[in-house]
Design a protein around this nucleic acid. Sequence first.
DNA 1: TACGTAAGCTATCAGCCGTAAACTTCCAGC
DNA 2: GCTGGAAGTTTACGGCTGATAGCTTACGTA
Lengths: 212, 212
Amino acid sequence: MTSSDVTAIGRSRNRRGEGGRLRDEIVEAAVELLDETGDERALTLRSIARRAGIAAPSIYRHFPDQPAIMLAVVRDAFRELHETLRAAVDYAEAAPPAPLLAICHAYLDFAQARPQRYRTMFGGLWTPTPGESSVTVEDLTTLGDVGLGMLAEALADCVAAGVSSSADPAGDAVGVWLGLHGLAHQRTVTHQLPAPPDIDDRMITALAHLNC
Amino acid sequence: MTSSDVTAIGRSRNRRGEGGRLRDEIVEAAVELLDETGDERALTLRSIARRAGIAAPSIYRHFPDQPAIMLAVVRDAFRELHETLRAAVDYAEAAPPAPLLAICHAYLDFAQARPQRYRTMFGGLWTPTPGESSVTVEDLTTLGDVGLGMLAEALADCVAAGVSSSADPAGDAVGVWLGLHGLAHQRTVTHQLPAPPDIDDRMITALAHLNC
DNA sequence: TACGTAAGCTATCAGCCGTAAACTTCCAGC
DNA sequence: GCTGGAAGTTTACGGCTGATAGCTTACGTA
């Protein structure tokens, strides 16, 4: 046993009904670890426990598995992303294409502010082998659909307002999202891209068929 | 020690000057493992050795590190990608935009045929912590530039031939690549995308400003 | 005030990992 | 034929991992 596995002295136990609070602390510790190291391999059961200041087996009170923690982290990140996008589209009440652009930029900002979390969300690596974990697949496939729906709606509004010439807003929204994803994902890996500074708007304009 | 760590009986040692042959076998074993498991965490020194039918420490004759194997795998994959793209553009001698489309489709086909390797190439996760490994950073940033250059050239030809209205072929080529990357990368994660079947050409046409 | 139970801990297991050091085998050239 | 070195092996060490079983502590309720 390593000495760092020993419980931190400062922590005081939660009250009777509030044991669930530790659950949030565990997820929080995992997120911190992910943001700092940028390596989801560093999110071991034990390292998370160390970071949260608890003993490793205490995690099993709140999560059945180690992959279950990853799922919680990713789910949290998706919830945060959806809230961000929702806030962006609510804020931009101006005429199209302003809401669409707001969503797109909010998406890119989200990814840039949390590169490691973004990469983990969409990297697909944390996905556990089916049957070996408590995490089920249907949980995952629908996680990204909310954002896509908002994008499709905003693009349809653009078409209705005459600022987009898209003949298939639903299909083109997927294209817009894939373009955003490529840009966002690559930025999480490197900033060495020889891209022009307005690459964001160029891609969005082209993929959404704006002003054309 | 696990019994599976024992050397396979069948292997016969390489001749005097041909020790380097094992190097290729090691990389090959790593690639097989990556393609099968889809998890770069499975590419451990020992699992690679088991797969190659050798003892684990034998790897150190050919690689200083475990990350060095990953670099070799990724480098190999990039070389293969570049050869594929080169072949595609050589084959398509037709007038623009045929070469551009050929490159793009070859790129997407490459990713779809080797999803795990593609994700590893661009996932950024295998990148070792600087200073802790023999792998240097300058090795990595330039790995993808070759393909980008080919793309830019093909796009410039399109502009010259009047089939693209791009005002900045070099910059837009980056956009095209990012779009392709988003599409290719997301496909390596899931096929559940609600994308129209012609999403590839839609994105390429839009990002490259073809026929417009 | 006594007690049941939630909350978290200690101790421990088996398994895998990367790596170092020293040993064996066998070929190539003198 | 002898010998040196290349090729690869065996053995071993320390450290980390996920997980289980059973213990302690303290709080809310009856």
